[in-house]
Design a protein around this nucleic acid. Structure first.
Lengths: 168, 168
DNA sequence: CTGATATCAGTACAACTGACATGA
DNA sequence: CTCATGTCAGTTTTACTGATATCA
């Protein structure tokens, strides 16, 4: 990426390259993280899609509607339905009717889900910790703070130029 | 994400949550960035896959072999072949034989590719700049530095726990 | 009735694995 | 001969769009 930025500077000295380099690094790092985490999950026999949904249910500690899940996971409604189906089929989640709203559904973890999920959570957390270990703790804190600011900007006021997201 | 981290702390106080939160933020921000950039690209009638390959060719300012492209784009060989085919079909790239190595190929931009690509590059750069604008310049520099360190760690010494990447 | 929720079927897209041809 | 390069075919995975039934 350093090389890439040099190249950009050479080709288009007038273009704004610092934010582009930043965006590029974020995306590339995310790609690395995803690939390496996927192999960790693979060893535990779960896909990232299912892992994310299950983790969300676990940390929220309450049944959630498909709409909530979809919003949090940034996936479409139908896509969320499919993820739920897989988890239900695997005996890791239960789908039940919402007593307060006849059209609504609620998804909750199954009884055996926690004991299945916990070792995986630990493995993933350990892996991420190792990846981040090359960064001093102080840098990590600054980094986290900056990323938080960017995320808030994204998730509160939609960024212009975004139009309507391909998602619903 | 802030809420997510609080939830994790509540559920598993013993687990390392700071690196997990950092990893989560990186991935979520990348997802936002990707979605919003995709809509920018869509308006210009090009997919991200093709845009990335074309940008790489543009900034390297030389023909590149499919192997080089695949390595840089982190995609498989066959996947790279397909991207090249699309670009060639669209008249944006040319595939020619490598005179020094009969089995090798070289991909170069077509003559009309630059004028097609430049406005898109500017639009994407402007979009990224706007996204990052909420962060003070100094923070951006620190952020970039930290991300560079992490990327270097990833791309020089493979992270353990990574096993062999699903990629070749 | 209008709008929201959830699901399903069908579709599209993107990428990979493995096999194969070619040449160093 | 063995290894590397590039491509193709086929498969898989994944998510989305649109239509539908249900209910506030």
């Amino acid at each position: 990426m350093d090389r890439a930025q040099e190249q950009w500077r050479d080709v288009h000295p007038e273009m704004v390259t610092d934010t582009a380099a930043l965006a590029g690094r974020i995306q590339r790092l995310a790609q690395h993280l995803q690939l390496s985490t996927d192999t960790v999950l693979l060893r535990h026999g779960i896909s990232r899609a299912e892992f994310e949904l299950l983790s969300l249910l676990h940390r929220s500690r309450r049944p959630m509607s498909p709409s909530e899940l979809a919003a949090d996971l940034m996936t479409s409604g139908a896509g969320t339905t499919k993820r739920i189906r897989k988890l239900v089929a695997a005996g890791l989640a239960l789908r039940e009717a919402n007593p307060l709203d006849g059209r609504g559904a609620l998804v909750r973890m199954s009884e055996r889900a926690p004991e299945f999920l916990l070792p995986i959570l630990n493995a993933v957390a350990a892996h991420e910790a190792q990846v981040m270990s090359s960064l001093p703790e102080q840098d990590r804190e600054l980094l986290t703070g900056s990323l938080r600011a960017l995320l808030i900007a994204f998730e509160t006021g939609p960024v212009a130029g975004q139009g309507t997201t391909p998602l619903s």
